[in-house]
C-alpha cells in the first residue's frame, strides 16, 4: 500500500505536480497556503468581502481546471492572482455594461476633478511606520473609483506594462496612462488630507 504523501511539508512544485495528476488533496494544500493572498487581491480590486470571497473561490476552480496550462514561468501564487484579477475585471465589465456612464465617470476619464488638485508633496515615510502607512494607503485606495483603483492594482501590484493593462481593460494605452496619472494624483491628495487631519503635516 503506497504511503500517503505529507502534503503539509511538500514543496510547492511537488504539490502542483500532484494536483496536475488529479490529486485534489494536494490542491487543497495549495488553497490552504495561498487563499488569503487570492482573497486579498480580489478585495483590493472589488472592496467588498462577499464578492471578493466568491471571486477568489471561482479563481481556484478555474485554476484547478487550467492546471495543465501552468508551466511554472511565474510562481503558482502569481499565476493564481492573475486569474483572480481577470475574474475581477470580468465582474467590473459586467457591472459597467449594466449601467450607463455617470457624470462622475466622465469627469474621471478626463481628470476633471483631479486637474483642480494641487500637486501634493507628501512625505509620509518620515512620520509613519510602514504598517501605519499601508493602512492609510489602503483606506485611500478604497476611496478611488473602480477604474482608478484597478489600474493602480494592475500596475503597482501586478506590475503589468501599460500596453497589457490596456488589453486587459479593453481600452487604449493613452487612457491607461491618463487613469494612472489621475489615480496617483488623487492618492497623493487623499494621503495629504489624512496626514493633515491627524496633525502630521500642516
Amino acid at each position: 500500500m503506497p504511503a500517503v504523501p505529507d502534503y503539509s511539508t511538500a514543496e510547492e512544485p511537488q504539490l502542483v505536480n500532484w494536483a496536475k495528476g488529479g490529486d485534489l488533496q494536494a490542491f487543497e494544500e495549495l488553497v490552504s497556503r495561498y487563499r488569503d493572498r487570492a482573497y486579498a487581491r480580489a478585495f483590493s480590486i472589488m472592496r467588498n468581502e462577499d464578492i471578493a470571497v466568491d471571486l477568489s473561490q471561482n479563481a481556484w476552480v478555474k485554476a484547478w481546471q487550467r492546471l495543465a496550462q501552468f508551466h511554472g514561468e511565474a510562481s503558482f501564487p502569481t499565476w493564481l492572482n492573475r486569474i483572480v484579477t481577470n475574474l475581477c475585471l470580468d465582474e467590473l465589465r459586467r457591472r459597467k455594461r449594466a449601467r450607463t456612464d455617470s457624470i462622475e465617470e466622465i469627469e474621471e476619464a478626463t481628470g476633471a476633478v483631479e486637474n483642480r488638485m494641487e500637486i501634493q508633496e507628501v512625505d509620509p515615510m518620515e512620520r509613519l511606520n510602514r504598517e501605519e502607512l499601508r493602512e492609510r494607503i489602503d483606506a485611500a485606495m478604497a476611496k478611488l473609483s473602480d477604474n482608478h483603483r484597478t489600474v493602480l492594482v494592475l500596475y503597482e501590484y501586478e506590475q503589468i506594462e501599460y500596453k497589457h493593462i490596456a488589453e486587459k481593460m479593453g481600452t487604449s494605452i493613452g487612457t491607461v496612462m491618463s487613469r494612472l496619472f489621475y489615480a496617483r494624483k488623487k492618492m497623493a491628495a487623499l494621503l495629504g488630507e489624512t496626514l493633515k487631519r491627524d496633525g502630521l503635516i500642516e
Binding site: 488569503d36 486579498a40 489602503d138
Partner: peptide, 21 residues
C-alpha cells in the same frame, strides 16, 4: 519627484488580508 515618491509608496502597500470565513 511627486510621482516617483507615490510609485514607491503604493508598490508594496497591498495589505495582507485574512479570509473573513
Amino acid at each position: 519627484a511627486s510621482l516617483t515618491q507615490m510609485r514607491g509608496l503604493i508598490a508594496d502597500s497591498e495589505l495582507p488580508r485574512p479570509l473573513p470565513e
